[in-house]
């Protein structure tokens, strides 16, 4: 090779090396090992619930009037007694508050409570996993009932004067007891003869409430329905459809909690896109109390209760707060009329 050839080879090599060096530096500078650019997946890979969240503002006819901390790490259930005292169960205890949210007392339990009901006479029924314990109004333990089945998991109790209804999510049944603890009959089991399709309970959420019309309302979350049973266990009617529209129940298993307003309307709470709404006794949507913008997205579900004045008391397990809602004009919580002295 001539000297000139050697030089030009070297120059060409130098140029190539230089260009490669620049490319290498740029590539290293652009490398993103820490996920700054996100997952770079297409839109079809995103789980989008944004479109499902908004609720027409004229449907929201309740406003949050107060909220207070439940003071529990894992609050699980809420109940209101005849005197409008608010009870919250969780952290192996029941705590109670005045109607304004001032702490008024607490009682420790032997186990983790799963649900709570306070009857008109002040008797508490507390579900402790598989069994029910009864406490007198002063908080002394009066009885502990034996579990109904091996898989019993109590998620709701409703106390009527002469009957105690227990929702057993594990056995997928509603159990009717007399107040003294004597088992009367199961309700809601699959029975082709009586045209009862049976309760489908995919997760430990099964709630019930005694309607003002004397029919027991039971959630059937796996079928996205609310069912009405007579005390004899006959399925009278059922309503509810699956869907993301606001008058339907969204997701795999909703509604998860029920309560009854003084005028007989039902308060139904959904998990997932946490929503609390009010339905007429026959199922038509009356209005919305609060939607996911307020209660968030969670799989926990907000337990609900109603006090004597028709206020809806919501246990927000994500915020660990009790939120109290009162009827308000649609579209907001602003009160409209006040004095007029200001210019």
């Amino acid at each position: 090779m001539t000297a000139r050839g050697a030089i030009s080879t070297r120059a060409a090599a130098g140029l190539i090396v230089f260009l490669a060096l620049v490319a290498a530096v740029v590539a290293v500078a652009l490398h993103d090992p820490i996920g700054r650019r996100g997952n770079r997946l297409g839109r079809d890979f995103a789980y989008e619930t944004k479109d499902l969240r908004p609720i027409p503002p004229d449907l929201i006819r309740y406003a949050e009037r107060a909220a207070f901390d439940a003071g529990l790490a894992v609050p699980r259930a809420i109940a209101v007694d005849a005197g409008d005292k608010i009870y919250v169960a969780g952290d192996r205890a029941v705590v109670w508050f005045t109607t304004h949210g001032a702490p008024a007392g607490a009682r420790a339990l032997d186990g983790e409570p799963t649900c709570l009901a306070v009857g008109a006479d002040g008797t508490w029924h507390v579900g402790l996993g598989g069994h029910v314990e009864v406490f007198d109004p002063a908080g002394a333990r009066a009885a502990a009932w034996t579990p109904h089945g091996a898989r019993s998991y109590i998620t709701a109790i409703a106390a009527a004067p002469d009957a105690i209804f227990v929702a057993d999510a594990g056995e997928r049944l509603v159990l009717l007891y007399r107040p003294d603890g004597a088992f009367v009959r199961p309700i809601g089991g699959r029975d082709a003869a009586r045209a009862i399709p049976g309760l489908v309970v995919p997760s430990p959420f099964l709630d019930l409430a005694m309607g003002k019309d004397g029919l027991l309302r039971v959630t059937n979350p796996g079928r996205r329905k609310v069912e009405a049973y007579s005390l004899e266990g006959d399925l009278c009617f059922a309503w509810g459809e699956a869907g993301a529209a606001i008058d339907r129940f969204c997701g795999c298993c909703n509604p998860v909690h029920l309560a009854v307003l003084p005028d007989g309307a039902l308060v139904a709470a959904e998990k997932g896109l946490a929503t609390v709404k009010v339905c007429e006794p026959d199922g038509a949507l009356r209005c919305v109390v609060a939607g996911p913008d307020l209660l968030g997205e969670n799989a926990l579900g907000c337990d609900v209760a109603v006090d004597s004045r028709g206020r809806i008391v919501v246990l927000d397990p994500a915020a660990k707060k009790v939120r109290i809602f009162e009827p308000a004009p649609p579209g907001g919580s602003r009160s409209q009329e006040t004095g007029s002295a200001h210019e």
């Binding site: 789980y47 969204c250 997701g251 998990k271």
Partner: peptide
């Protein structure tokens, strides 16, 4: 994606 859907509404 399914994990999100299952966690949000289901078990």
């Amino acid at each position: 994606k399914c994990v999100k859907g299952c966690k949000m509404f289901g078990n």
